[in-house]
Design a protein around this nucleic acid. Structure first.
Lengths: 267, 267
DNA sequence: ACCATTAAATGATCAGACCAATACACAAGG
DNA sequence: CCTTGTGTATTGGTCTGATCATTTAATGGT
């Protein structure tokens, strides 16, 4: 079925482009000519199979060599398709006998990675990013207050305990990891996977910034967090929100200030 | 500088694994042995260069052949790295003289794609997804009410006008596109790029579902939207929210019902 | 039953080649 | 001078075929 994959469309596309260039048929709506690359076609076929239910999580795809022959493309092409889907979290590639490409359930990492990329490339400003963090956080708190269970609150408090144990400057990295985990645990209390994913997307990149600009050591974060969890336990969403908002306001102000300082230093 | 890229770590990792297997040092915290693949190393080097400001949007990387030689890896390896970063929206690959790999500003598509993947693979439930949509929508409305300008409201109304023009069943696809555009325009009114990104992430996958289960033709969406925009213009966030919530409630109920029906039919 | 060795399968990488599209230089013709 | 066509070099896209590294299962000895 894949035999037509590598047939050349060059003559046809050239014709279309020339036609447009002449300007005669300008009013006729041509779709932008975009020759799909072979590996994209392979990607699409696999994704389509998943959408239509012909493939689902846990299924194993044919080995690269076999699939290449079946689709009448080279192994390198199958490889690029597999790589693309692996990065997307759709496939997992395992070596060895009984290895191969296995369909996964998806992965959150591409999302957090993309947010990080957008931040470091300037496609997303730090202030917009932080405001979105605040907005999401508000909704998370509402849900967590309504649905959080004792186990969730316990996990949050354990996290705070561990944070307080790490006081030396050398443990900044571990503290950062715990901070990020705190937000993850909070999102988990919403019992909503999608909210967890979105929160992860706007939380994970924090680590990169904290590593760059350092932490605000002039403030005891643990105290604020304890008050916050207490409000959560009391199902007092407005107070919990107020506590968190004041914390985030301080954090974001600190980050903006330090980032601006770093930018000044660079120029 | 990259000369050590292809040196084999196999002996070292094997040693570590054997040591662990013996169980003697179980209490010592080993990091999980994860032999990084060559193309990942290349990816990381490029991303690091971006984070450190040595590369920024608009810069052009060396050609595949040159970079392969510089890093002492094969062209295929550079290629997989480039492909990975291209899919991530970090690079754009262009053929021809003066072509090559150009650093971009990032792209939102990986995020929406990942959400779609998670939905079709079962890593994210439809109900969780829709609830997150509602939560995000609430925040978007707040911001849009506060910051939306006349041009934004105008764009929304134009969108509604065009939706009303399309009434035949054959134009379902176009109507869907307009529906998605409506949410994008609404997000744009927040003047916050991050909110736009998050909204896109939870809006885009709608198209896939609507195409599958069809639209609810028993209800006039345009009317509800007109009321909604009127509330926006009046800066009346609570009423705007109420209008949108009732609409989404209906839409989501319809989707859950039809999806369940489709699932029944399949089994 | 247990352990070490071997073998086969499979992804990871490499090497070298050719194809296809693109942009630029340059010549031809108006 | 401007336009138009024609190379032509460059670069990503694909192919072929090979070797390396890792994993699992089979094998076989103790």
């Amino acid at each position: 079925m894949g035999e037509s994959l590598s047939i050349s469309f060059s003559n046809w596309t050239t014709y279309l482009q020339r036609t447009r260039r002449n300007g005669v048929d300008e009013n006729i709506s041509f779709k932008p000519v975009k020759t799909k690359r072979a590996f994209e076609e392979v990607c699409d076929q696999i994704r389509l199979a998943i959408q239509e239910g012909r493939l689902e999580a846990g299924d194993k795809l044919p080995a690269e060599r076999q699939l290449a022959e079946a689709l009448d493309v080279s192994r390198a092409t199958v490889r690029e398709a597999f790589r693309t889907l692996e990065i997307a979290g759709v496939l997992s590639l395992r070596k060895g006998v009984n290895g191969g490409a296995v369909v996964m359930q998806g992965d959150v990492r591409p999302i957090t990675q993309t947010i990080s990329d957008l931040l470091s490339l300037g496609g997303l400003s730090l202030s917009d990013y932080m405001e979105a963090r605040v907005c999401l956080q508000r909704e998370v708190i509402k849900l967590a207050c309504a649905r959080g269970e004792e186990a969730d609150f316990q996990a949050l408090e354990t996290n705070i305990d561990e944070t307080e144990k790490l006081t030396t400057a050398a443990q900044v990295e571990d503290r950062t990891a715990l901070t990020i985990e705190f937000y993850h645990l909070l999102a988990a209390a919403t019992k909503n996977q999608a909210m967890s994913i979105l929160m992860a997307a706007v939380t994970e990149p924090l680590g990169y910034y904290i590593k760059q600009i350092g932490v605000d050591r002039s403030w005891n974060v643990a105290e604020s967090r304890r008050r916050f969890v207490a409000h959560l336990r009391a199902r007092n969403a407005p107070e919990a929100e107020k506590e968190m908002m004041s914390h985030m306001e301080r954090l974001h102000g600190y980050m903006l200030q330090r980032t601006a300082a770093a930018a000044d230093r660079r120029s």
